[in-house]
Computed example of a mutant assay.
Amino acid sequence: MLMLMITLIMMITHILIFISILISKKKKFDREKNSPFECGFDPKTPSRLPFSLQFFIITIIFLIFDVEISIILPMIISFKLINNMIWFITSISIMIILIIGIFYEWNQSLLNWKF
């Protein structure tokens, strides 16, 4: 009885797949539409092509300052909950670290956009 049910389920599944293939609107198989899309790179080319280091650095800078926003916003909300001196020292130290980082990036000329 179990084998009969499994066979029947498999047959129904295959029939439904076959019917969906027959009546589908996509008849023409295009290489571009069938290939996976990965960030604009062609998956059929070698993966060891030269990559723009400037793009990578700008991405890292963006992530750093995105995390900075997620640190600063709760600090503003917690101003009333924490001792003012502790809050002040913490916020100033975070700001000094970020300012030193931005001066380092500026000194290394990582913020120059070259096209």
Rank of each mutant, 00 (worst) to 15 (best):
M1N: 09
L2F: 12
L4H: 13
T7R: 14
L8Q: 12
I12P: 04
I12F: 14
T13W: 10
T13E: 04
H14S: 15
H14T: 15
H14I: 15
I17L: 14
I17N: 13
I19M: 04
S20N: 03
S20H: 04
I23L: 00
S24P: 09
S24R: 14
K25D: 08
K28M: 01
K28V: 08
D30H: 13
E32N: 13
E32R: 14
E32W: 08
E32K: 08
K33M: 14
S35C: 11
E38M: 14
E38G: 07
C39H: 15
G40P: 00
F41R: 07
D42I: 04
P43Y: 00
S47N: 11
S47K: 14
S47D: 12
L49W: 11
L53K: 07
F56H: 03
I58C: 03
T59G: 13
I60K: 06
L63Y: 06
I64G: 09
F65L: 02
F65P: 01
V67D: 06
I69C: 07
I69D: 06
L73F: 11
L73D: 04
M75W: 04
I76F: 10
I76S: 07
I77Q: 11
L81E: 08
L81R: 05
M85N: 11
I86V: 14
I86N: 10
W87H: 00
I89M: 07
S91G: 05
S91M: 04
I92P: 00
S93W: 00
I94M: 01
M95A: 15
M95G: 13
I96H: 02
I96W: 02
I99Y: 04
I100P: 00
I100T: 09
I102A: 01
Y104M: 13
Y104T: 13
W106Q: 08
S109I: 03
L110E: 01
L110H: 10
L110G: 09
W113H: 07
W113P: 01
W113F: 11
